[in-house]
């Protein structure tokens, strides 16, 4: 039963409620980083990594401290602090251990603090678990983790696919008024239209 739950949560977070195309989280890196495929991979790996750890920590904090002591109203400020310190810590850790890892992934870490997607997933998890009436801690943690994995993978999928489209787009002859961001947004709209068709899977 728990495997089905896990798989459903991953597919729904990755394809059906895609983080960029359906929920509009992380548009900023989507438009910025996706110019080069290598940058897209580095950014999405960093996002996936931080997203998994941060949603585990924020869910634990919410369930075991904030909710238990009746102070869920400070969740926003607590979550942003958790994410920000996690990002700082991970960046420091990577700086000290591996130069090549820092070059490919670490440089995107400072940008992640202000990435909507991470805080959005943490906040969304709380509502999601609340709505689905999952009572115990471990069940909620499983849902939170699988949502984080699915969201991170969906982010990477879209940002990588879009960077490939964009490399073609650079070479094509676009009217001056549409060059750059406007045509990217329209392309994203068409991608979003395609993903709208996946809504019937589950």
């Amino acid at each position: 039963m728990s495997f089905t739950l896990f798989a459903t949560a991953i597919i729904s977070a990755m394809l059906i409620n895609n983080v960029i195309l359906m929920q509009f989280l992380g548009i900023c890196p989507f438009l910025g980083v996706s110019k080069k495929s290598s940058a897209a991979i580095g950014m999405s790996a960093a996002v996936l990594f931080v997203m998994i750890i941060s949603s585990a920590i924020t869910y634990t904090l919410y369930d075991l401290v904030l909710y238990k002591y009746g102070i869920p109203y400070i969740s926003t400020i607590a979550f942003i602090l958790v994410i920000a310190s996690l990002v700082q810590f991970v960046e420091m850790f990577i700086k000290k251990t591996s130069k090549s890892l820092y070059k490919s992934l670490g440089i995107y870490l400072p940008l992640i603090t202000t990435n909507c997607a991470i805080l959005g997933v943490s906040e969304g998890n709380i509502t999601n678990i609340w709505v689905n009436h999952i009572g115990d801690y471990w069940g909620g943690l499983l849902i939170a983790l699988s949502t984080a994995v699915g969201t991170g993978l969906g982010f990477g999928l879209i940002i990588f696919a879009f960077s490939s489209i964009r490399e073609k787009l650079e070479a094509s002859d676009v009217p001056a008024a549409w060059k750059g961001v406007p045509i990217s947004l329209v392309v994203a709209g068409i991608m979003s239209l395609a993903f709208l068709g996946l809504a019937g899977i589950i």
Binding site: L21, F24, A177, W178, P182, L185, V186
Partner: peptide, 19 residues
Amino acid sequence: GLAPGAFIALGIILAVFQF
């Protein structure tokens, strides 16, 4: 009113500004 329209509408507005 749905997700794709958001991207396309913002794209159109930005294109007008860029024009």
